[in-house]
Each structure stands twice: as C-alpha cells, then as structure tokens.
Amino acid sequence: MVAVQDTKIMLRDVSIYYSALHVIKSVSMSFLDKEITAIIGPSGSGKSTLLRSLNRMNDHIAGMRVEGEANILGSNVYAPTVDVVALRRRVGMVFQKPNPFPKSIYDNVAYGPRLQGQKSKVELDGIVERSLTQAALWHEVKDRLHASGLALSGGQQQRLCIARALAVDPEVLLMDEPASALDPAATAKIEDLMLKLKEHLAVVVVTHNMQQAARVSDYTAFLLGGELVEFDITRKIFTAPTDKRTDDYISGRMG
C-alpha cells in the first residue's frame, strides 16, 4: 500500500464523453510522486484523451463531458470551483510535436514565470538557468539565450519545451509521446532526462513505443478502447501480464 501523500493523482471511475462518444470508460488508477507512469495502447485507445484530461486541456472541445472523480493534487479537478489556471501551473505538459514559441530561448523559458507576474531580471535569469539545466540544455544554449527557440534542432526544441514546463515548478509533468517526432539519439536524451526529472516530480508519459515504456517507466497502464485493461509495475506488465489482451499487445499481435 502506497502512502496517500505520495499519490499525486487519483482517478476513480473516470469516464469521458465527446458528445455521444464514450472515449474513456470508467478508469480508476493513481499516479505516484517521483515515479514515471507510462500509458500505452494502440491508436484511438484514448491515451491522449486521458492524459489531457489531467490538466483539463480537453475543456475547449465542444460536447466534452467528464464523469467520476479525478483527484489531482488533493482536489477534484472537475469540480466547478477549480481554478484551471492554477491547476495547469502545478501540472505541466509537454506535447508530441515540439512547439516552442517563435520567441527567444530565454523568453520561451521565462514565459510561465512572467505569466505569474515575475518581473525581476535576476530572478528570471536564475529560473531560466535552473530550468534549462534541469532539461539538460543549458550547456548547449547558454551562449545564445536570445536566439530564436525555433533555430534549435528538433531534440533541443523538445528539451526547451520541457525546460519551459519546468520553469513554473510543476508537481506533475504530463508528456504526450514526447519523443515520437525525434530521431533515436534525441529520443535517448529525452529518456535520460525523464529518469532525472522523476527525482523531483511525478511524470506521466503517453507512448506508442513499448520499448520506451519498458526502459523508463516504473508503472505501466495499458489502455484499449478507452478501457483500462491492466495497470501494474512495468516489469510485471512486460514479463507476466495477467490479461491476455495485454500480452497480445506487448508481444506485437495487436495494433
């Protein structure tokens, strides 16, 4: 049994609908601090929808409806009183395609802190250096902080996006197939980085790459058709899955 304070996110019977479409079907699971949880499953299984529901990035989709309880950092995120802006500061996100703003590297990282009203140059300088260091990018860019973020390579851009997310000190980092647009060398760097990041926060990663899930994650959830088929310690999922469908998927007999 895991101590309650180590649970960052607890989902209880969470269902998500897009109008009449039942996309996530009564999922219950928890995400732990200082651990990497991977969500795997074929395309269309609802992985991204589940991930994006954790910081309410699905809110703008017309007809989206959530049932059940999503208890994130101690409060139900779909309660009407929740401050979405505050939630997103505590639950950061990195997207599939690197999407740095067309601004300088410095301004990309400083974007979040500035939103919160941080104006002090000294403070911002410190935050930028710390975040870029955490994202293992500082040494590559420290001499050109004012160059455009778009001038970086794809892998560097993704690490810049990670630095940007880290700059507001999130407690959870959501990563939506963060390496799928990158080459193997850049992917390896991102994976190394994830292992370092989990020393400070909870990491949730959606991936279609099972080797990646096996390499980096501590826990793995297998999603199929919106249903949570199996959720367990990663080693167990990949060596001795209990459900036949999990076995089929990880051994490549399915999508």
Binding site: R88, G92, M93
Partner: peptide, 17 residues
C-alpha cells in the same frame, strides 16, 4: 499554429494572455 496557443494554455495562461 494552434500548437502555440496550446502550449500557452498548458503553462497556465488564460485566453487573453
């Protein structure tokens, strides 16, 4: 690109920001 807006929202920006 909508990705820029998405990244901004994910960092806790509101619509006007």
């Amino acid at each position: 690109p909508r990705e820029y807006a998405e990244a901004s929202y994910a960092l806790g920006a509101n619509r006007w920001q």
